[in-house]
Design a protein around this nucleic acid. Structure first.
Lengths: 189, 189
DNA sequence: GTCTATATCTTGATAGAC
DNA sequence: GTCTATCAAGATATAGAC
């Protein structure tokens, strides 16, 4: 039995809202997701969403984020970086909860101004800076940026656009085939 | 002086609508673009947009499309494919008119159902099938799909998200650094 | 052909009863 | 804490005058 204290009820409501909002933002993006559909999926009243998160923007900010880096890209070496980055990306989208948070941000990052800024400045720029720090030779900044572009393209094509051949491929095959591709940017020798 | 015949006036109005709509769909995507803002930018009345294109969906369909393939990916060989694909993508975004059409489709392809289907089925699947036909060895289908994923990631990161290091890079540097990356997928030897 | 006026709907957000 | 009722704004789309 669940308790019925004020706090526990409030927490259960908030969890239900967060879960429903994560799914809907991930599936349809910011604009097509409405407070009403979130409430309906959570099985609660629309006014409760406002009570808990203040605004639609507040709800989106609470839901859409890039999960922590599992692969420790910062700790990687030139040798381990390509595989580590791939395992991180694929792992994020294979973990329940993280998948929705990442997909929500990614889905809206071309159309929602805040999501665009977060994706560019907090996700991509930060990661490409970490990649850049590991590189040697010429054009390190651009090579790191292209590394990020390939990663974001992989994520979008596989998980959002769902290009059939790519969405159906196994985790292992994707890593195996993409690893030497990224290595070409890390170590062009 | 411009003529004032019925047809020429109608054509000028339609051109103005198409140009304004292309810019706005490209800049802000389907949802945030309104009939009113299109009309305002075109300097005409909102009702005229409906008169000419029937609906917002109709206007979007008339504007958002992937331009023809300049590089003749179909005619390319394994040797020329990576560079041809890159020149095609970059060329599209450097050509006025084509840029807006492509950006409009790309900008909305994660959030607008029709745009998603067009991008996946008519743009990516068709092109990856052409790439696939050129490949030898194992995993040709998946390698072609990953080729497409890298290309779409490059386009989105450079022209829509505008990752600073990538948006600022020269055409030549992007082609030079990406060409061996794509070659790794075309010819993994 | 073009525009005025408006119908109709949907949205985010608020006020207040319980 | 939760829900009913509603507001105000903005959207697409339509009807009809000129």
């Amino acid at each position: 039995m669940t308790t019925d204290s004020r706090d526990s009820r409030r927490q259960r409501t908030e969890s239900a809202i967060l879960e429903a909002a994560g799914e809907l933002f991930a599936e349809t993006g910011y604009e097509r997701t409405t407070i009403r559909t979130v409430a309906a999926r959570a099985g609660i009243d629309p006014a409760l969403v406002m009570q808990h998160f203040g605004s639609k923007e507040g709800l989106f900010a609470a839901v859409a984020r890039w999960p922590d880096d599992h692969s420790r890209v910062l700790d990687a070496s030139v040798e381990t970086l390509p595989r580590a980055a791939l395992e991180d990306l694929l792992g994020t989208f294979e973990a329940h909860g993280e998948r929705e948070a990442a997909a929500a941000l990614m889905r809206s990052c071309l159309t929602h101004p805040t999501a665009t800024a977060v994706m560019r400045d907090e996700v991509m720029c930060e990661r490409t800076a970490a990649v850049e720090a590991l590189l040697d030779g010429q054009d390190v900044e651009l090579r790191a940026a292209l590394f990020g572009a390939c990663m974001i393209g992989l994520g979008m094509a596989r998980y959002l656009i769902e290009l059939p051949a790519l969405a159906a491929a196994s985790h292992e095959d994707v890593v195996r085939l993409m690893e030497p591709v990224l290595r070409q940017l890390v170590d062009p020798a």
